[in-house]
Design a protein around this nucleic acid. Sequence first.
DNA 1: AGAGAACCTCGAATCGATTCGATCGAACCG
DNA 2: CGGTTCGATCGAATCGATTCGAGGTTCTCT
Lengths: 356, 356
Amino acid sequence: MSDTATSGARPTLAAVAELAGVSASTASLAFSGSGPVSAATRERVLAAAEQLGYGGPDPRAAALRRGRSGVVGVVMEDRLADAFRDPMNVAMLDGVADEAGAAGASLLLLTESGGELSHLTSAPMDAAILVGCSTRIDESVDRLRLRGLPVVAVEAEERAGVFTIGLDNRRASAEGARHLRSLGHERVAVVALPLQPSSGSAPLPADWETRTTSHTALERLRGVRDVYPEFDGAVATGSTVDAGLEAGRLVLSLSPRPTAVIAQSDLLAVGVLRAAEEAGLSIPDDLSVLGFDGIRPELVRPWDLTTLVQPAQEKGRAAGAAVVRLLAGEEPAAASFTCQLHVGRTTGPVTRSLPS
Amino acid sequence: MSDTATSGARPTLAAVAELAGVSASTASLAFSGSGPVSAATRERVLAAAEQLGYGGPDPRAAALRRGRSGVVGVVMEDRLADAFRDPMNVAMLDGVADEAGAAGASLLLLTESGGELSHLTSAPMDAAILVGCSTRIDESVDRLRLRGLPVVAVEAEERAGVFTIGLDNRRASAEGARHLRSLGHERVAVVALPLQPSSGSAPLPADWETRTTSHTALERLRGVRDVYPEFDGAVATGSTVDAGLEAGRLVLSLSPRPTAVIAQSDLLAVGVLRAAEEAGLSIPDDLSVLGFDGIRPELVRPWDLTTLVQPAQEKGRAAGAAVVRLLAGEEPAAASFTCQLHVGRTTGPVTRSLPS
DNA sequence: AGAGAACCTCGAATCGATTCGATCGAACCG
DNA sequence: CGGTTCGATCGAATCGATTCGAGGTTCTCT
């Protein structure tokens, strides 16, 4: 048995069938369990399988015949370590795994890094979910659609042939900005997520609207502008605390110094808070900081961050459910999610202080 | 074109070949690029493909014929969200993705949750990497070996038919313990990783050695025992700060209170540090805390944790490289990694204080 | 110019299972 | 006791590409 397991030639269903004295079709039925097979026959087949060290039907062959491989691709732009550094992505993926897994599908991790689209073409999958999308999404979508695969995109621009899971980034961002304005803030600065695949830490360019390829970053910037037509800011290199720290130093050195900073993610916000700490500012008296995402409080500790809480896992579930439905040939219901403002203790009214 | 893309029946290689006026075999060569095909023919085929909206050879069929699907399964025990909450797993996965990706393979995420081994049997993959292994690994390994798949396990007991990537958990843990003893600590307590798939927060049972199914937890416990034949402790529910906090409270309420706590992961250690904070203890004067892993300092802030730094990403790379080599039919070189003690500021000499 | 080499292209077999319609036998009914 | 029905089993076609050896053409060298 063990010998068989290590020898090169795996037994095939046909071999099992022969040993069991039945036809290959019957053996197949015995394994899939779907067809009408007598209990006696099934057992005979299973016994033969065990004797031969047969591990069940080859998924590759089954996939070809069925036209389904039971695999859903998840396409991320980043390196895996970067993508998973962001708790929102993890929560989302968990949601996807939940729904897809319940439907019997596994997740195939794919990245677009380095313009390597070849994987998108050659990976066996039945559908794809695009996350953390940018404009470069178009190329990927084309590849996938050409293969006839259903595509679901999370937080992307609406696009023909792609089912989109939405998040009200613009509205939520505006709501956060309004919160700040109601506290009297007039000079706000934004610490933005990367506007393009690999941009460095830099001041926010004036023409950000035309230069941004990240849909999420763009919408959130627009939301801010809806409330503050004029604002300054910096672009971070990623959604991490370190990147936030770096960008935070940048915006805190602006003069006049902003009285509030709008960070496009909670991790960035934590970085900004650290930068403020470095600069000896007290929160929220000297500086208000607003985040986005609503990550677990433990990661923001010791602060109670004012932020826009988004239902990341739900987004993932919706994406997973949409894929499942698309695969079943149904049209999924439109799904769009809403963020909720959590007012913590990192934002407060403007205090009249001497300009530094 | 767009019509073709959305219509049900995808064109096949044969259709493309016919339109291009060549045989299917030639068309195949034209796509794979491997065979000798004249430039003119190739272009004719590619043009025909474009005209038909053909997205390239169907990976399912290719996988069957070639006997390779270009997919490596990564099997984790946990729910994805739990697994990715641990930075070590993420770093490792990143390493795996690096090596496997370079060899043209993608990663398929699989979990053993709920005894659902069916995915292991039906997922199309060429090899599997087992992470965060327990004794339940045996069942999974059997399934995989039966399918004739090469299996690589990270931090698992040596086992026939499985290539193991080792980590010197026992030695490292003992080294950490010796560090504590050299500081004069005699009463130490351990905050252990879950000993079994789903155990609750509880005191460390006396018969841990026989009851532990997690190889990593077991080895680290043994390492401690090598130095401290007697020690007390608690078992956490996972490798998270919250679980560490809970278990930390437990061990700090022991009497006599330990003067040092050995946590089996840095996240747990942070939880213990918080529990100490709660209890009004000052670090390291009232309590020394030792971690394990060496996660990014930013996650441990503001402490400088004494810990055993393990090369997680390297582990992943080694696992990835091993899989690649196994798939190539070669015997990978044995790989075993070593942790290094980083002495931070959470451990210090025992101070003679009044017992509380 | 003829032999041989080099280079393309093609036909046919194959990968391993799934599935549908047909067949066969036995039990059931009147 | 014959016809019918139901359930189990089987044959054969099919999924869509890859691959190997054979065949045909053109080019080169002498």
